[in-house]
Write a protein that binds this DNA or RNA. Structure first.
Lengths: 149, 149
DNA sequence: CCCATTTAGATTGCATACAATTAAATTTAT
DNA sequence: ATAAATTTAATTGTATGCAATCTAAATGGG
């Protein structure tokens, strides 16, 4: 890559990732609309369907999101009747998020989504798995650099 | 991958991409702050440094963004004195974005950024190139699916 | 025990993103 | 030519994201 092309948009890995993330989110949109969820609400529930009754802090660690994003989002999910928010008795600083009956039931409707999505994107399972491994590794690397400087 | 793990967050390619995009943007933040730019403003200028005097439509095609995002962003860049916005005389529907003298000069300060970023992320050039090619291919595929359904 | 430090959430302010709609200009079909 | 369809931006409304700050609670060293 010559010096003149360093700043070219189409040579930038970060941009490809950034644009891809948004295009993927748009692909999710019609599927999630049927469940009445946004993408961020959906991934929040993905975590809760794996491990229920967790703190906002832990949710943030899993999702790479902070309380500035999560607090309003969780209040929304609470208003929708999908989760409850309650202070931890053991540590009053923490807030514990738990699924409601309705939140648990919604999982059934969501089971088809990953399959449908991958099919729509037209990626082979092998390709998806390889890319997933690489992206996860890159994610760890980039995150590890956040506090170094 | 068994049935039970389909909905697991850490098995989702889209989430890895989405989280990676955000972590990358955070890594850019201190570097771009010195230029007084946000990431989206930065990539908009990347396009203009490649091809000046283009329409909002073309900018949107390059960046995968629509006028809902670009119009306020371009007004901001205009207020910062980096670009001008004027209707196309040949086609009054279009608005042509052009760099100002100041906008052109900013390119010099931005030249180091891609290098610094890649170094910070700790990715080898080979690895970055391979991943970039795969992500670009995936981006095209996902985008191509947007109007199919 | 007590004060300084740390930690967890909430809040504020700013900047995206994007769906949906609107308005104006251009193109197309008849 | 002219009405209908299409195209381009702008606007509106909703939902993130995140830096920076604030508050309350817990922790830890002296």
């Amino acid at each position: 890559m010559d010096t003149g092309s360093i700043l070219k948009l189409d040579n930038q890995l970060c941009f490809a990732i950034y644009a891809c993330a948004r295009e993927f989110t748009k692909l999710y949109h019609p599927l999630l609309k049927e469940l009445g969820l946004t993408y961020t609400q959906y991934i929040t529930l993905l975590v809760l369907w794996e491990e229920d009754r967790i703190t906002v802090k832990h949710l943030g660690t899993r999702l790479y999101l902070d309380s500035g994003t999560l607090t309003p989002l969780l209040k929304k999910l609470e208003a929708m009747g999908l989760v409850t928010r309650e202070r931890d008795r053991q540590d009053e600083r923490s807030v514990i998020i738990a699924l409601t009956e309705q939140g648990i039931l919604l999982k059934e409707k969501a089971l088809d989504i990953p399959e449908q999505l991958i099919c729509q994107a037209g990626v082979s399972p092998t390709e998806a798995a390889g890319l997933h491994a690489q992206m996860t590794e890159l994610l760890k690397k980039v995150q590890a650099q956040q506090q170094v400087t």
